[in-house]
Design a protein around this nucleic acid. Structure first.
Length: 480
RNA sequence: GGGGCUGUCGGCUAGCUUGGUCUAGGCUUGUAGACUUGGGCUCUAUAGACCCCGGUUCAAAUCCGGGCAGCCCCA
């Protein structure tokens, strides 16, 4: 284990800073397989927090967890042409069992629509079987050929994928928006990361979907990060997998479907958005360890009394549902511990030393601001709760400011190019709606349409690229 | 997709340009002990490395080729 802290500054060498923080804080490690990562204890604990939040949300609305095989027969993938075309370049194939070649090669799932929907066709016969609302937590393999980056782009990652089938188009549409709303709540109110929400353009939508809704965040280096997607699949898969039911009208109908997911990439976003030169900064709502208590047992001080006070405080906080670590390791100095827990992003640190004991108080330090305050013993819990709220809000507010600072409205293509090249960020522009302009802008600047916002305002100017009549205002950015 | 850079103890690195006292040095870390503890204490002892394959050469960490891996920049 390396115990040396972060050696580069976030605003000087962002990419290296990110890698250092991820590795040194114990979130992840490089795996001995190219493009793959080891998700370590700390990151997995954050992932479990995210799982808890999502499970609670979706289970409250009748979605249940399942598990489907990770192998998908080639024939399944091929059924929906656009889907197959979209995913086949990065599918990992299983071709042999032991030494014997398989009759039909198997894809290691790049996503599970096809294997699930082949099964839906068996499960669904009547309108009474609908809706189907399932979700699975699993790993996904997409054999990236581009440079990989811890959490943001790896060949294998973890996600949840929700899949639903409905009797009507309206129901499916409602589901897509419902999930979008819950994702937004997760990202903004738990991860403290503001997002732009809206539609993907046709060239960026999910392969096989009618349309894709997306949530996009802005990273400090000016690149956008797709945080989650919710797809309306329409009847595209229902047609090819023949998923039909007899309706109340006694006629055959095809189902309407949705799928939606978020991945471990969210953890990378938290690192990038909130982290600082000392390491991680975790929002209290998703911090696996919310409070660390560091006793300061001076020589000659009553170490026994300090230790028992620390235990007492820890127990009281734990009893109220707060996740606490009491760091009584004698072999490390307090200063060393401060640095280590700061690297790991623990939101609050409570110091208890002789001075505190004498005055029946503790010292509480905030991770986000570094501010230290003395708190009377009887006020510890209330103060901790209050500080959690403050930190959670502070992180979100800071991220909102950062997003606003990196959002530009431009009407001139030269200025557009300059901002993309020099600053990055989201560029709000008028767009004619043609994929030609979209492609040209991508080729000329590297920026793509990240979001077509839901609450669309009518453009008052012409298309940024072609100067023709504009259809809508969209957000361009370069992205991860 | 294109270009560039880099691989040395667990981590960070010196050495490489100009092959030879390199028997590979330092810091950090690990282990044992002592001393300490309000911001990465100090001391002692000890452990630990030239990415892999091939080539050139009397001689390779150093030069050449290939592989693998990582990073950066551009699209």
């Amino acid at each position: 284990m390396s115990d040396i802290g972060v050696t580069v500054k976030k605003n000087e060498a962002f990419s290296e800073w990110y890698t250092e923080v991820v590795v040194k804080s114990g979130l992840a490690d490089y795996a001995p397989i190219k493009g793959c990562m080891i998700i370590r204890e700390h990151a997995y604990a954050i992932w479990e927090k995210i799982q808890g939040i999502i499970n609670k949300k979706i289970q409250a609305t009748g979605h249940l967890n399942v598990y489907f095989p990770m192998f998908i027969p080639e024939g399944f993938l091929k059924k929906e042409a656009e889907h197959f075309e979209g995913f086949t370049p990065e599918v990992a194939w299983v071709t042999h069992g032991g030494d014997s070649p398989l009759e039909e090669k198997l894809a290691v799932r790049p996503t599970s629509e096809t294997i699930m929907y082949a099964t839906f066709a068996k499960w669904i016969r009547s309108w009474r079987d609908l809706p189907i609302k399932i979700n699975q937590w699993c790993n996904i393999v997409r054999w990236e050929t581009k440079a990989t980056k811890l959490f943001l782009r790896t060949r294998e990652f973890l996600w949840q994928e929700g899949h639903t089938a409905h009797a009507t188009s309206e129901e499916a549409e409602k589901e897509v928006l419902y999930i979008l709303g819950e994702y937004r709540d997760l990202m903004e109110n738990y991860l403290a990361i503001p997002v732009l929400v809206g539609l993907k353009s046709d060239s960026e939508k999910f392969a096989g979907a009618l349309y894709t809704m997306t949530l996009e965040a802005m990273m400090p280096d000016g690149k956008a990060l797709q945080m989650g997607t919710s797809h309306n699949l329409g009847q595209n898969f229902a047609k090819v997998f023949d998923i039909k039911f007899v309706g109340e009208d006694e006629k055959d109908h095809q189902v309407w479907q949705t799928s939606w997911g978020v991945t471990t990439r969210l953890i990378g976003a938290v690192v990038m958005v909130h982290g600082d030169d000392k390491g991680l900064v975790l929002p209290p709502k998703v911090a696996p360890i919310q409070v660390v208590i560091v006793p300061i047992p001076y020589k000659g001080a009553d170490a026994e009394a300090i230790s028992s006070k620390a235990k007492e405080v820890a127990a009281k906080l734990q009893a109220r549902g707060i996740s606490v670590v009491l760091d009584e390791r004698a072999e490390y100095t307090p200063g060393w511990k401060f640095n280590q827990w700061e690297l790991k992003g623990v939101p609050l640190r409570i110091e208890i030393g002789p001075r505190d004991l004498k005055q029946q108080q503790v010292t509480i330090a905030r991770r986000d601001t570094g501010q230290k305050i003395a708190v009377k013993e009887e006020e510890i819990f209330a103060t901790v709760e209050k500080l959690f709220e403050d930190i959670q809000n502070n992180l979100f507010e800071k991220a909102k400011v950062a997003l606003a600072e990196k959002t530009f409205t431009v009407q001139n293509y030269e200025e557009f190019k300059r901002i993309v090249a020099e600053i990055g960020g989201f560029l709000k522009v008028a767009w004619c709606g043609s994929s030609e302009c979209e492609t040209k802008i991508k080729d000329e600047t590297g920026a793509t349409i990240r979001v077509r916002p839901l609450e669309n305002e009518k453009p008052t100017v012409t298309c940024i690229r072609c100067g023709q009549k504009a259809k809508e205002m969209v957000f361009f950015a370069r992205s991860y």
